[in-house]
Design a protein around this nucleic acid. Structure first.
Length: 428
RNA sequence: GGAGAUUUACCCAAGUGGUUGAAGGGGACGGUUUGCUAAACCGUUAGGGUUUCGUAAGGGGCCGCGAGGGUUCAAAUCCCUCAAUCUCCGCCA
């Protein structure tokens, strides 16, 4: 959500930005908003006048009553009732304009950073940089679910019975490795100076509506029956929601938090669930990082944040690359975003394990998150990024550390979390 | 889950229908006094959103007493719904 003042003063920039995102059908929204905004301000001014008049006259009624001039008071009362009738009509108009403006503002995309590459869709995303040598082993790497099964680490059949498709039981050492990664990610971020946080795993509808659109909500969120609660799809929801309507002190910035949570997703979107694997599932666990900072520091943090994820995966001997979201693939709320992708030696290609975004002040405007500074209050910038999500991160580690004999080496940094175990070997 | 109490500014707190344009403390800040500090005294300290006038400095208007509705000529004050906090009971890891 961009600033309506900015739109008022720079309609051409807003339109140019829409064109760069190949959303030409939204161009008309800009002029509509300008027109509605004008009408709305007119209505507001009229309403203010009426309210002012009512206040003055009501006070007069009080004075007249005190002095026993009942008849005069009655005639003024009648006058105020007329004003109220008009005010009611006018307020309906004010509300209508405000709603129509908001509906359009929600659809107008955030102004992208100048560095975002122009492209129509995800096929035109741009590889920024590779980290680590993408190894092509001389032996075949099995499908990740088969690796996990060979290590007696997976039971999808039982999960199917208890919960249905998209769920899984992780078992034994593999389950432990999964938890080890999350725990290591937590400590990794704490060492970067982030504050660790375990947030609520359910949030109310007003928070959900603040962090995502209705369409996204329908596609992702599980609702608790009979309660005003949703299971979170990522801890970003509760972590950013934490600051909804708040004014933080400038000296507290930047706020750097790292949070653990399970994540629940309906995944009713285009891709759907995978039959066998653990790549796309209804439930996973994630270590997340969020930063709330001043606008001028946002780009520095953005670069630091994705590089933390790169560093994290490199410490697990997983080759990665960063893939920048092109204009057409960039979500409307974001200023700039890139995915961190891990190398899959089986598929000989990279796959997404994390996503780093800077949203400028758009999210803060929507949720009203401000900082109190010397020159007054201002909207903060918000950023979020994945440290690691598992099982997806688990897949990357298993494939990249798979040995010819079917065993899997445990990356050194994870061994302390595995009771010193160095290697997982198939039972048979 | 049940019963009761509470929610006003940085903190405490007065305020049950009409100069509340929100009292009074505390704290903070500024000043006087002072060799310095403290004390005392004086002063300042209600924000936030938005709109409008003005080149600007600045001045108006509207909203704002947990949130949202309602009653009324008029709401911090009366009514309803919701949320949070505290106490007790129940239940439970």
């Amino acid at each position: 959500m961009i600033d309506i003042k900015f739109l008022r003063e720079n309609p051409d920039i807003v339109k140019e930005n829409i064109k760069k995102k190949f959303q030409d059908h939204k161009l008309v929204l800009v002029d509509e908003v300008i027109d509605l905004d004008k009408k709305n301000r007119e209505a507001m001014r009229h309403g203010d006048e009426l309210r002012n008049e009512r206040k003055t006259l009501s006070n007069e009624v009080g004075n007249l009553m005190k002095n026993g001039k009942k008849d005069e008071a009655e005639s003024i009362k009648a006058k105020v009732q007329e004003i109220n009738a008009e005010l009611e009509k006018n307020e309906a108009l004010e509300n209508q304009y405000a709603e129509e403006i908001k509906a359009r503002m929600m659809k107008i995309p955030n102004i992208m950073d100048a560095s975002v590459p122009i492209g129509k869709d995800d096929s035109e995303n741009v590889e920024n940089e590779k980290f680590g040598e993408p190894l092509v082993p001389t032996y075949e790497i099995p499908y990740h679910a088969d690796i996990i099964e060979s290590l007696s680490g997976l039971d999808k059949e039982s999960a199917g019975r208890t919960s249905g498709n998209g769920f899984y039981y992780l078992m034994g050492d593999v389950a432990r490795l999964h938890s080890a990664m999350i725990a290591y990610a937590r400590d990794f971020m704490i060492n970067k100076g982030f504050t660790y946080c375990v947030p609520p795993f359910m949030i109310r509808s007003d928070v959900v509506n603040g962090v995502m659109s209705f369409e996204e909500l329908e596609a992702m969120m599980y609702k608790i029956e009979g309660e005003d609660l949703y299971l979170i799809g990522t801890s970003e929801h509760s972590m950013i929601g934490k600051f909804k309507g708040q004014i933080v002190k400038e000296e507290e910035l930047p706020i750097c938090l790292t949070s653990y949570s399970p994540c629940f997703r309906k995944e009713v979107g285009s891709h759907g669930l995978e039959e066998r694997g653990l790549y796309r599932v209804h439930q996973f666990e994630k270590e997340e990082m969020i930063v709330i900072c001043k606008a001028e520091d946002a780009m520095d943090w953005y670069n630091k944040m994705w590089s933390y994820t790169v560093e994290f995966f490199r410490s697990l001997d997983v080759p990665v690359r960063t893939l920048e979201c092109c204009s057409g693939d960039l979500a409307d709320l974001k200023v700039k975003s890139c995915d961190v992708e891990a190398w899959s030696p089986r598929q000989q290609k990279y796959f997404e394990v994390g996503s780093c975004s800077t949203l400028g002040d758009a999210q803060a405007r929507r949720l009203s998150i401000r900082a109190k500074g010397e020159k007054g209050n201002y909207l903060v910038s918000t950023l979020n990024n994945t440290v690691v999500a598992s099982p997806r991160g688990l897949i990357a580690v298993l494939e990249n550390n798979y040995q010819e004999d079917g065993s899997v080496l445990i990356p050194e940094v994870l061994r302390p979390y595995m009771g010193g175990l160095e290697k997982m070997t198939p039972k048979k």
